[in-house]
Amino acid sequence: MTSVRTIVYPVGDLTKAKAFFGALVGAEPYMDEVYFVGYHADGQNIGLDPNGHRQGLTGPVCYWHVEDIKESLQRLLASGATLRQDVIDVGGGKLTALATDADGNVIGLVQVAEAGV
């Protein structure tokens, strides 16, 4: 089963973004590192990526949680998507990848070793 459960926002000023999203979500982050800040919000993971703009991201990326990231990425590429970021291990048993659809929309995939993230 695939579903969108993570949205990552590229941010220029992590301190300001944390203040804004903390107020929006109404909670403290579950992860607060210099490279990523994450919030849980009613079943959604909301992430702040201070490196996103340097990676060419201009807006939020929705990450589809999938059981087999390599197979899912290959299906997207076979359907005409362009590879933006191959599968990488971002730690904690989490794998991510990015593809771009025909309209230039960035689509994220995530595979998590444990359910619930």
Rank of each mutant, 00 (worst) to 15 (best):
L98T: 05
Q55D: 14
Y35A: 10
E33S: 12
V112Y: 10
D42N: 10
K70M: 08
Y30R: 15
A102Y: 01
N105Y: 13
P10D: 02
H53T: 12
R84Y: 09
V66N: 09
D42M: 14
T58A: 04
N51A: 15
R54N: 14
A113E: 12
L83V: 08
D42S: 15
Y9P: 01
A113C: 02
S3Q: 08
P60L: 06
A78E: 11
F21T: 04
D42T: 13
Q74V: 08
G52F: 02
Q55E: 11
E67S: 13
G52E: 06
E28G: 02
G22C: 03
G26N: 03
G80S: 06
D49E: 06
V66S: 08
I46Q: 01
F36A: 00
L14I: 15
P10Q: 03
M31L: 10
D49T: 02
A99I: 10
V117H: 09
V66D: 14
G116F: 14
L109P: 06
G56C: 05
L24V: 15
H40C: 00
D89L: 06
H65Y: 12
V34G: 01
E28F: 00
Y9S: 05
N105M: 13
G104Y: 01
K70D: 14
G108S: 07
Q74I: 07
D86F: 13
A17H: 02
M1F: 09
T6H: 12
E28L: 03
V8A: 09
V106K: 00
C62R: 08
A99S: 15
Y9D: 03
A81S: 11
N45Y: 10
D101N: 12
I7T: 09
G92S: 08
H53L: 10
G52I: 06
Y39I: 01
V117K: 10
Y35N: 11
C62W: 07
F36H: 07
L109E: 05
I88L: 06
E33W: 01
L57V: 05
Y30S: 10
V66E: 08
L24E: 02
G59I: 01
T6W: 15
P60I: 01
H53K: 15
A17G: 03
L73V: 10
T15V: 14
I69E: 08
I7E: 07
R75L: 14
A81I: 01
